[in-house]
Simulated scan of single mutants.
Amino acid sequence: MFAKKNRAERTAEEAWEHLSSAWATAGDSAGRAGRKSRRLASRAGDRVTSVTDEAVTRAAAAADALAGRRPSRPWLLIAGVGLLGAALGWAAASTARAAIERRAENEEIELAETAVVVTPTYDDH
C-alpha cells in the first residue's frame, strides 16, 4: 500500500529494535551473571549484577518512553529534602530567637548597671 514510511514510523521501528536488543542483552547478562556468580568471587558477581540492573532499568525506561509514559517524580526524595529544609529552618529560627533574647537580656543588664537613680531631697525652706 504505502511504499514509503514516514519518519515517525521509522523512528518507532528503530526504537523497538533497540528495546528488543536491550531486553535480550539484559536476559543474557542475567543468565551469565547467575552462572558466573557461583564460580567467581562475589565482587565480580556484584559488578555483573549492577550492569544487568542498569540494562534492565534502561530497557524499562525505553519501553515507557515508547508507550508515551513519562518518568515518575521521586516523591520520597522530594519529601525528604522538604523535611530536611523544614528542620534546618526550625533550627535557624530557634537559634536566631535565642540570640535575640540574649541580646535583650544583656541590654537590660547594661541599662540597670548604668542607670543613675536620682533621689529627690526635700528641704524645709
Rank of each mutant, 00 (worst) to 15 (best):
E13P: 02
I100C: 02
T119S: 13
K36T: 00
V48D: 03
G45Y: 02
A92N: 07
A30T: 07
T57W: 04
G82M: 06
A15G: 05
A33Y: 01
A62H: 04
V81G: 05
T95D: 12
E113W: 14
A41Q: 14
E101G: 11
S42I: 09
E14D: 09
G82P: 02
R39M: 11
A93E: 06
R32C: 00
R58H: 04
S42D: 08
R32M: 06
A96W: 15
A15C: 04
A3T: 11
A86G: 01
R69N: 04
V117Y: 14
I100V: 07
S72V: 07
S20C: 11
A44H: 09
L40R: 05
S94I: 04
W16C: 01
E113G: 00
E17V: 10
S72Q: 12
A24I: 12
A44D: 12
A91G: 05
E9Q: 13
E13V: 05
D123T: 15
A15I: 02
H125L: 10
R38H: 13
L19K: 03
S42C: 06
L66Q: 03
T52H: 03
R43Q: 06
P120T: 04
Y122H: 11
A96P: 00
A8S: 11
A24G: 05
E17G: 14
V116K: 15
L84M: 07
E13F: 13
E107L: 15
A96L: 14
D28L: 13
G82E: 03
A15D: 03
R35F: 00
R102G: 03
E9T: 09
A15H: 03
A104F: 08
R47M: 01
A115V: 08
A112M: 04
A92H: 13
K4M: 05
